[in-house]
Amino acid sequence: MRLVFRNLNILRSTINAISMSLDLKEIVESAGTNLPNLFDFSSFGVLWKEGPLLYLYQDESCPATFTDDVVKNMVRIFSLLGQGPIDVESIHLRVEKRKFRPGQMMMDPRATLKSHLTFPLALEEEIFGCVSLNNDQPNAFDAQDLQFFSVIGYQMAATLKHFQRFSSVKDMATYDTLTNLHNRRYFEERLAVETQKSFYGGTSLSLVMVDIDHFKKVNDTFGHTEGDKVLFETAALLKASVRKKDTVARYGGEEFVLILPEAELEESAVIAERVRRLVEKTFFEVGQERIRLTLSLGISNFPSHRATSKEELMEMADRALYQAKRRGRNQVCIYDPAQG
């Protein structure tokens, strides 16, 4: 009886730790840290269908044969639950090795999966993954293990679902729904962070304002639905042209903005020119026609242009964009203090 109470207390603190987690990795870590106090197992896995991602918490002596068995078994069960086949090759596997067993109880280097408990991660009839406890010994789990593990499974599902909902709310607040780029609100926040980093750290920072030339004509000629398609395609081209650390956002209407951290003026000019050329060479399908479009781009840079605030850096990029428009469009202009 005392053992049951002890286990219930461990179960309670495990559930508490899971519910306090803030993201998938943290949830898996909380569970992985606490589960060895409740169960005797060689590996604990969480399969999450988005990705798909598979986190494995394993004893450090787990051989590759065993890991392979666990991966295949979880994928097989997930498919059996009516979720369609998952290609094992497409899974992003994250393996954390931990010392679950005393040194003298190392796993056989040819060990295979002999018993497991797998529990669907599901809420409201939607299955979004599964969790499993795995062992290289046959009949390693009993009915009480299943009862306890199912309680943990329910809590993980609820927490993960909550996290997923929270993420989608966060996405809605930071992404532009038409182009899937970051929205203006996110851009403002990101720019504040990057300017702080640059101004105090003395690193370079470039800002590029981008505007589609004569976009109004597209809307007037082909309608707003076709215009939206052009915005979406342009956004994709912008994203494809920048570096991983850069931020691309929709500023409003047909205006976009790029934040290029640690980019000197020359490098940002190269990136901006690459964007301009890519769009210039692209055919956009609008209605029954294929049309070509061009961009005007304006660049400002810290420290070259001696901006003292993010607002000033924005103002300079905006003026440079105005220069590009005034000089005939389809070009990149760098802010020139002499032009004002």
């Binding site: 097989r76 497991h116 529990f119 789990f141 009915a143 293990d145």
Partner: peptide, 15 residues
């Protein structure tokens, strides 16, 4: 039974 076995090996089936 197939689903139960897939999820929990013999634990459910034994009961």
């Amino acid at each position: 039974f197939d689903l139960f076995s897939a999820l929990a090996g013999g634990v459910i089936s034994r009961e």
